[in-house]
Design a binder for these strands. Structure first.
Length: 567
RNA sequence: CGGGGCGUAGCGCAGCCUGGUAGCGCACCAGACUGGGGGUCUGGUGGUCGGAGGUUCGAAUCCUCUCGUCCCGACCA
C-alpha cells in the first residue's frame, strides 16, 4: 500500500475528550473515528489490526474444534420472551418494531438465537458435543459508553456456545476453552490473568474472566502472591481474620456528632476494626424486591455489594434513602444491629468477636462491649466484605492478596441448562430418552482487545504493536523525491510485494521527521529507509521501531528480512 | 437517574463577562526556498459560532428551551 493513497488521518493535537491512552492513540494514529456515542468507524488501519486479532482467535477456536457460523444482528423479541430475558434484560437491550409491528431487538448476545437454531437441528446425542462460534458486531445500549473502544455500545465480539449431553462433558469443553483462551491471550502478547468470576443470578458450575492487566481497567481483581488463586473483587474471598476486643457488658455511650466509623474509633480510642459499620440496603429485583436489609462489617472493611446481592438472591442492592432509617428502627449515622426491625446480615469476620462498638439506634450514641452473637439477632453470617490488598489467602494460607486493575476481555461460562431448558434444546440420549442439553458460553471482546493491547503496548511516541498485529508488516520510507530514489524505492516496493510482504510504502513528499513520527505513531514494527544518501552506497537502512538504523546492502535486504522477520 | 463542564474551520483553542467587520496555532491548497526527527517564507481555501425561539437597530456574546458530548457521583451511616 502506498501511504499517499491510504486514509490515515493522523493528528498532531491530542483529541480533547479522549481520557485513556488507547482512545487517544486510536484517534491520533487514524485507526478509528467516532460516529456517535459509543459507536465508531474502523478506518483502514483499525480494520487491519482488528482482522489480525480475529484471525488469531479464529485459528485457536478452530484448532479447539469449534466451528464458525454467523447469526443475525436483528433478533425477534419472541425468542427473548421464550428465554424469559425480554423483561429482565432492561434498557441495555435495544428494542424496536419493524414495519409489521413485530417486536425486534439488536442482539447484545446470542444465547436465544443459537438455542433456537440448535433446538431445531439437534436430534441425537451422537451430534454432541458441539461448539459453535461467531465473530460479529454486538449492540448494547450502555448507560455510559466511554474510553473509546473500551466500552462502546456497538462492538465486535467473538461468542461461542457449546452443547453437551451432560455436565461432565461440559466441564471438559469449559477446560478446553479456558486453555484456548490462554493460548489466544498469550499469542496476542498480553500480560493477562484468568480470575474466578461472579456467575451472577444465572448460577451454573463455574465462570472465569480473562483480564488484561492495566491501570486504566474498570475492574478490580485480586490474586494471591503465593498460589494461583485469583478472583474478581466481586467474588474474591480472603482468609477470615477475627479481631476481638475485651469482652464486656453492653454499654451506651454518648458520641455526639460522631457518625463515621473512623471518628467513632478516634473518639473512643478503640481500633477501627472493632467499630462495626452497619449499612442499610434496599434490594432491587428478585423475590424480595424493595425489601430493606441491614449489613454489618468491620469499620476498616467495606461491603462488597455484588456478594451481598448474590447472598440475598437479588439482582442488585442500593444504599437506603434517608427516610428508610426510621422504618428499619435505626437512625442515620447511629444505626446498629441491635433491635432493628429488618433482617441483619453480618460478615463472618465479626462472628465470635466481642468488645465491639455499634451504633445505638438513637441520635448521638453508640454501644460498646458488644458481641453480635450475644446482643444482636443476626439473620445470617456470611462473607460480604471486599477483599483488601494484603489480606491473607484463604486457599494456601501463605500468600497475601494483591489487588490490581484489569480490563475484562474474555469470559468463559458453564451455563448448565438455564437457556437450553426454556428454549427446548433437547436430544435423544443413548437410551432413546429425551434429554435437555447442557451448555457453555465463551466470549471475547475483540474490539476491546484492540484497545487493551494498546493500553499495555504504547510509549510517548505512539503504539507499539507486537509485530504480528501491526497493520502492515513493515514500512518502506523513501527520503527525498528525486527520480533515482523514487525509482529505486518503487523497484524495492514491488520486490517486497512479490516476496509476499505486506508493506506500507511512504512515498509522500514530506520531510523525514514527519514520516518517522507518523510511522512511530501508528506503530509500524519494522522500517526500511531508502534515501539518496543510502542509495549512493547501494544500501538501505533497516531498523525496528524506535531502534537504531543499520545499513544493509540493497541486494541483501530480502535475505535480511527473511531472517529477521521470521525470527 | 443526579451533579458539573464543554459545543466557534478537520484537530487544538481564543473571543462571550462589558452585544457592533469571526480570530489564532496545527492541518489543507498554490508557489518558492529547503531536505535525516513534525523546516521557513509568500499567497490562499475552508465556519449555518450545535439547533430553535426570544430580547435588541444589531446576538458567537444576553435570556429561554432543546440537542449533542465529556467527566464525576452513584451516598460506607
Amino acid at each position: 500500500m502506498q501511504y499517499s493513497r491510504l486514509l490515515v488521518p493522523t493528528m498532531r493535537n491530542m483529541p480533547a475528550d479522549a481520557e485513556v491512552v488507547s482512545h487517544q492513540l486510536l484517534l491520533r494514529a487514524g485507526y478509528i473515528r467516532r460516529v456517535t456515542s459509543g459507536v465508531y468507524d474502523y478506518l483502514p488501519l483499525g480494520l487491519r489490526v482488528l482482522r489480525k486479532i480475529e484471525a488469531i482467535i479464529r485459528e485457536e477456536m478452530n484448532r479447539a474444534g469449534a466451528q464458525e457460523l454467523l447469526m443475525p444482528m436483528v433478533q425477534p423479541a419472541d425468542l427473548w420472551e421464550k428465554s424469559g430475558r425480554l423483561h429482565k434484560y432492561g434498557p441495555e437491550l435495544c428494542r424496536f418494531k419493524d414495519r409489521h409491528e413485530h417486536e425486534s431487538c439488536l442482539g447484545p448476545t446470542h444465547e436465544e438465537v443459537i438455542c433456537d437454531l440448535v433446538a431445531r437441528e439437534l436430534r441425537s446425542y451422537k451430534q454432541l458435543p458441539m461448539n459453535l462460534y461467531q465473530i460479529q458486531g454486538k449492540f448494547r445500549d450502555e448507560i455510559r459508553p466511554r474510553f473509546g473502544l473500551m466500552r462502546g455500545r456497538e462492538f465486535v465480539m467473538k461468542d461461542a456456545y457449546s452443547f453437551h449431553v451432560d455436565d461432565a462433558c461440559l466441564q471438559r469443553e469449559y477446560d478446553r476453552m479456558f486453555a484456548t483462551y490462554q493460548r489466544i491471550f498469550t499469542r496476542l502478547g498480553l500480560e493477562f490473568r484468568a480470575v474466578e468470576a461472579d456467575n451472577g443470578s444465572i448460577g451454573g458450575a463455574s465462570s472465569h474472566e480473562f483480564h488484561v492487566l492495566a491501570d486504566s481497567g474498570e475492574d478490580l481483581i485480586a490474586h494471591c502472591s503465593h498460589c494461583d488463586y485469583a478472583a474478581n473483587i466481586e467474588k474474591a474471598v480472603a482468609a477470615v481474620e477475627t479481631v476481638t476486643g475485651q469482652a464486656a457488658d453492653k454499654t451506651v455511650l454518648a458520641t455526639p456528632n460522631t457518625t463515621a466509623a473512623e471518628d467513632v474509633a478516634d473518639l473512643l480510642g478503640v481500633p477501627l476494626a472493632l467499630v462495626v459499620k452497619t449499612m442499610l440496603y434496599r434490594q432491587q429485583g428478585g423475590d424480595n424486591d424493595g425489601q430493606l436489609v441491614a449489613v454489618c462489617v468491620r469499620g476498616d472493611d467495606e461491603v462488597q455489594e455484588m456478594k451481598l446481592a448474590r447472598l440475598l438472591g437479588t439482582d442488585a442492592v442500593e444504599l437506603a434513602a434517608d427516610d428508610d432509617f426510621a422504618s428499619a428502627g435505626g437512625v442515620k449515622g447511629y444505626i446498629g444491629p441491635c433491635g432493628l426491625s429488618v433482617a441483619v446480615y453480618a460478615d463472618q469476620s465479626l462472628q465470635g468477636a466481642s468488645g465491639l462498638v455499634v451504633g445505638a439506634n438513637r441520635p448521638d450514641a453508640h454501644c460498646t462491649g458488644v458481641s453480635l452473637e450475644r446482643d444482636a439477632d443476626i439473620h445470617q453470617w456470611a462473607d460480604i466484605r471486599a477483599v483488601r490488598d494484603g489480606d491473607g489467602c484463604q486457599r494456601c494460607h501463605e500468600g497475601t492478596m494483591v489487588l490490581r486493575r484489569g480490563i475484562e476481555t474474555g469470559h468463559v461460562f458453564a451455563l448448565g441448562r438455564c437457556y437450553s431448558e426454556p428454549m427446548g434444546v433437547c436430544f435423544q440420549d443413548a437410551n432413546g430418552k429425551r434429554a435437555v442439553a447442557t451448555m457453555g458460553c465463551y466470549g471475547i471482546g475483540v474490539s476491546r482487545l484492540m484497545a487493551a493491547i494498546i493500553e499495555q503496548r504504547h510509549d510517548e511516541h505512539g503504539i507499539d504493536w507486537p509485530s504480528h498485529l501491526a497493520p502492515f508488516q513493515l514500512s518502506l520510507i523513501t527520503l527525498g523525491n528525486k527520480a533515482p530514489v523514487m525509482e529505486a524505492s518503487a523497484k524495492l516496493y514491488r520486490a517486497l510485494q512479490d516476496a509476499g510482504y505486506d508493506v506500507l510504502w511512504d512515498e509522500r513528499r514530506e520531510r523525514p521527521g514527519v514520516k518517522f513520527r507518523d510511522h512511530e505513531l501508528i506503530g509500524m514494527p519494522w522500517q526500511i529507509v531508502l534515501s539518496e544518501r543510502s542509495l549512493e552506497r547501494g544500501e538501505v537502512e533497516f531498523s525496528a521501531r524506535r531502534a537504531a538504523r543499520n545499513p544493509v546492502a540493497i541486494d541483501g535486504i530480502m535475505s535480511h528480512l527473511a531472517v529477521t522477520l521470521e525470527g
